[in-house]
Design a binder for these strands. Structure first.
Lengths: 164, 164
DNA sequence: CCTTAACTTCACAAATTTCTGAAAGAAGCG
DNA sequence: CGCTTCTTTCAGAAATTTGTGAAGTTAAGG
């Protein structure tokens, strides 16, 4: 059997998934350690791990875990939990965490929009460049609204497929 | 007047926009030179510039332009045009180029999905981790379909707002 | 309070990425 | 055909990013 004793899954399968999924995330622009930590959490049995467990499994220093987790928490990819009555912190990923993360991309969009508005008004709305930027701006505004609606639909569908 | 003679806009306004918009793109993960080139094109009068013009305006070497443009073309953020009857190449950004670029993110999604499917089957669809990954996978599949539909809606709206 | 366990911050070393100048490679034009 | 003009490739210097060990900080538990 590939199942080891002591409640572990096949450590090699897990590691293989972790590294290959992390690699995809890195390629899409995520920091390497953050990607690995996220993948490890995603493939963990409970979806929760302590800093020590992460460092152990990924063979990285506490400092690296700390940095990765800070990034992931900022971008809402994981949530931190203070285990009550212990100085241990636990990091959790839920199945619908991507929903959260994507929703928060909105802040980025907002900043892009601000920069574009600035550009339109400083170059002049009646210039060719101004019109081009205005169109870009309109596209972003459109996407922003659509994403919100899309997320609402996902909520409904998710509830049906996976329950609450 | 801020309008210089010779058809130029106020060079400083343009540069200010270019750098500030580029900075936002960089923060979101784009390479710096690519971001600057893209912003320069977006704010150019015709939406078209030659390699030499880009190098001149941004004060970067031909090599840097070449690298940036290759990246932008790969990700469909700009299109290259061979000016017929000249060894000069021209790079163009259109108002709806983001549409193109976003559409092509699909390939990235596909790879993520593949990695997740691999993970689900290797960890077991009946394990907690497997279920969590399956849910993530379902989310991505959902998004993929929704984005396609969204883009179709944008096309329609765009036509109304800006014409063809 | 003092001890101890855990996380965070800091300074530095290592690795990677980025940009340049120079040379090589295409492609029009005479 | 060779010249000229533009783009790309390449090797290396410079800058940035990344990850570590070690010191610092916070908070639980005696």
């Amino acid at each position: 059997m590939t199942e080891a004793a002591g409640g572990g899954r096949d450590a090699e399968s897990v590691s293989k998934f972790v590294e290959s999924f992390a690699a995809q995330l890195v390629e899409a622009g995520m920091q390497r350690m953050a990607a690995r930590v996220f993948a490890a959490l995603l493939s963990s049995d409970k979806g929760v791990m302590t800093s020590a467990e992460l460092g152990e499994q990924l063979q990285i220093s506490p400092a690296a875990v700390s940095g990765a987790v800070r990034y992931l928490a900022q971008t809402h990819m994981v949530s931190r939990e203070r285990e009550p009555g212990s100085r241990r912190e636990r990091y959790r990923v839920r199945g619908d965490q991507w929903y959260e993360a994507l929703t928060n991309r909105e802040a980025v969009l907002k900043r892009w929009e601000a920069a574009l508005r600035e550009g339109v008004s400083s170059l002049g709305a009646d210039t060719p460049a101004g019109r081009r930027m205005a169109e870009t701006l309109a596209f972003f505004e459109f996407v922003e609204g659509e994403v919100a609606a899309m997320m609402e639909r996902w909520r409904e569908r998710r509830e049906k497929m996976f329950g609450a």
